[in-house]
Simulated scan of single mutants.
Amino acid sequence: MKFDLNKFIAKTLAVGVYSSMFLFCVAIIESFFKKSNVLDRSFFGIMNGLIALDPNATLFSGIVILMLTPVVRVLFLAIGYFIEGDLRFCFYSILVLLILIFSVYFGVH
């Protein structure tokens, strides 16, 4: 059985979208039962909010997963092209990945 990179990438995108959609729905349901506190946007603040069933933390984690889905896609493309031996497209994928990382870093700060 041959590894199909396109199907793997499609499944990766689907998992990212469905998991973020699930977290959005959970956040909506949580908001009916619990008032949200001020959200600490650090990693540990979000994890503590998820444990405490804070709707803002759940919503924020869904947004983060949705934003990271294309980045993970490009990373898997670079790895897949490297495994297939297509170094030109591997280089292009790494270049796009670097552009994504720099734009996220400089867009936040």
Score class of each variant (00 low, 15 high):
51 I>P: 00
66 L>C: 07
24 F>H: 09
50 L>M: 15
6 N>Q: 07
36 S>K: 15
46 I>C: 03
108 V>A: 01
108 V>I: 08
58 T>I: 15
26 V>L: 15
83 I>C: 03
9 I>L: 10
1 M>H: 10
34 K>H: 14
109 H>L: 13
48 N>T: 08
54 D>K: 14
1 M>D: 06
52 A>G: 05
82 F>P: 01
89 F>W: 10
24 F>R: 08
16 G>I: 03
83 I>L: 04
69 T>Y: 06
19 S>T: 14
17 V>D: 01
22 F>D: 00
42 S>F: 09
3 F>R: 02
48 N>Y: 09
69 T>C: 07
50 L>A: 10
55 P>A: 03
65 I>F: 06
97 L>E: 09
106 F>N: 03
25 C>H: 00
95 L>P: 04
80 G>D: 06
103 S>T: 05
102 F>R: 08
13 L>E: 12
68 L>F: 12
55 P>V: 08
70 P>T: 04
6 N>A: 12
87 L>W: 13
52 A>R: 14
1 M>V: 06
19 S>K: 01
82 F>I: 03
64 V>L: 09
104 V>Q: 05
48 N>D: 15
85 G>E: 06
69 T>W: 05
20 S>P: 02
51 I>R: 13
94 I>S: 13
108 V>N: 03
67 M>C: 13
61 S>M: 15
48 N>P: 00
55 P>T: 10
4 D>P: 00
100 L>S: 12
12 T>Q: 09
96 V>H: 03
68 L>P: 01
67 M>S: 05
33 F>Q: 04
25 C>L: 15
68 L>G: 10
98 L>Y: 06
7 K>V: 01
51 I>F: 13
23 L>D: 00
104 V>W: 14
7 K>C: 05
35 K>P: 13
52 A>E: 15
87 L>D: 10
11 K>G: 09
105 Y>E: 06
29 I>C: 08
25 C>G: 11
67 M>G: 02
37 N>H: 14
64 V>C: 07
65 I>V: 13
36 S>V: 14
53 L>K: 06
44 F>G: 00
65 I>W: 04
65 I>R: 03
59 L>T: 10
93 S>I: 10
98 L>S: 11
87 L>H: 13
108 V>E: 01
20 S>H: 00
12 T>P: 00
70 P>R: 02
34 K>V: 11
63 I>T: 08
67 M>H: 05
30 E>N: 13
57 A>T: 11
91 F>H: 11
58 T>M: 15
